[in-house]
Design a protein around this nucleic acid. Structure first.
Length: 280
DNA sequence: AGTTGGACCTGACTGC
DNA sequence: TGCAGTCAGGTCCAAC
């Protein structure tokens, strides 16, 4: 599923491919994709004729910052299976194309979303932190606000397992199942350890592992694991799946100690993967 | 306030 | 072969 590294990979590619282009219109093919917008007309009104100043990202969402004189922001939340693809208007539409962003010139951006958990929404202004969808978001993992001291404060109030806490976008933005599993392996912490029971050294390792794992995943162009649909804006898969240590490796030997990787459901019903020997 | 479980959604997979 | 049931998880919502 697209998490921060996949969203960041697409952001960088889009910046290069369509940065500076002018939007000629937005066409919604699957109405559900625009469910967070007041109306489809509003989506077009807030984006048509405006130039893409910059492509941004907040957590797992890709942001198109439009027209600084009459600012608005196009928000693509990728959900489980959302993808952005650069295409030419003549190419046949994928069955799951939820929306098409038309551009002046020879390109368009397509939002493809098989499971329809993603969304496309336009909001007035550029102040993302004030917008409904991001108001309660925690810091970006690479920001100055994300520090071991911040983790100490925020985790001290949480008695739930560290994995669901790490996946809570209000705690830190951009982490989903794949990277939560991988970060906790790297930090040597069991996913069901209560968040407020992490030791100081554990919090330090968690902080470091969060940044290291996400950084390496971005460098590898994200993960396209076995049951994942993820591919970049050119349709190319990521390369980080080859370096996964625990995610989707149930029963396979830990690459560090050889112990079979375990899988169990955490509270909330999601699966977690961990090495029973390396993670405490 | 924080935690938990259910709902949404589709394709892949399992079992009879 | 076919078909019902289950699973996967990002995010929101309601209940405790």
């Amino acid at each position: 599923m697209p998490e921060l590294p996949e969203a960041e990979t697409m952001r960088r590619q889009l910046e290069k491919e369509v940065g500076g282009a002018t939007i000629t219109g937005v066409q919604v093919h699957i109405a559900r994709a625009a469910r967070e917008q007041g109306s489809a007309e509003e989506l077009v009104e807030l984006s048509k004729g405006r130039q893409i100043d910059r492509i941004g990202r907040r957590g797992k969402a890709v942001l198109f910052f439009l027209d600084s004189k009459k600012p608005s922001t196009l928000i693509i939340r990728l959900g489980m299976t959302g993808l952005l693809r650069v295409a030419s208007p003549g190419e046949p539409l994928d069955t799951h194309t939820a929306a098409t962003i038309g551009l002046r010139g020879k390109k368009q951006v397509r939002f493809i979303d098989q499971r329809q958990f993603g969304s496309i929404t336009a909001r007035p202004g550029h102040d993302v932190d004030q917008m409904l969808e991001f108001r309660d978001y925690g810091p970006e993992p690479f920001s100055d606000e994300f520090t071991p001291a911040y983790l100490r404060d925020v985790l001290s109030r949480r008695g739930a397992g560290i994995e669901p806490v790490l996946m809570n976008q209000g705690v830190v933005a951009g982490i989903g199942k794949i990277y939560a599993d991988e970060i906790l392996f790297r930090a040597g912490i069991r996913p069901n350890r209560p968040a407020n029971k992490l030791t100081g050294p554990m919090r330090e390792r968690l902080w470091q592992a969060t940044r290291d794992v996400l950084c390496e995943a971005i460098s590898s162009g994200g993960s396209s694991a076995a049951d994942e649909t993820y591919a970049d804006v050119y349709g190319m898969p990521g390369r980080f799946q080859d370096r996964l240590q625990v995610y989707q490796r149930t029963g396979e030997p830990c690459r560090v100690c050889g112990t079979p990787i375990r899988r169990a459901k955490m509270t909330g019903g999601r699966g977690m993967h961990w090495c029973p020997k390396c993670q405490k």
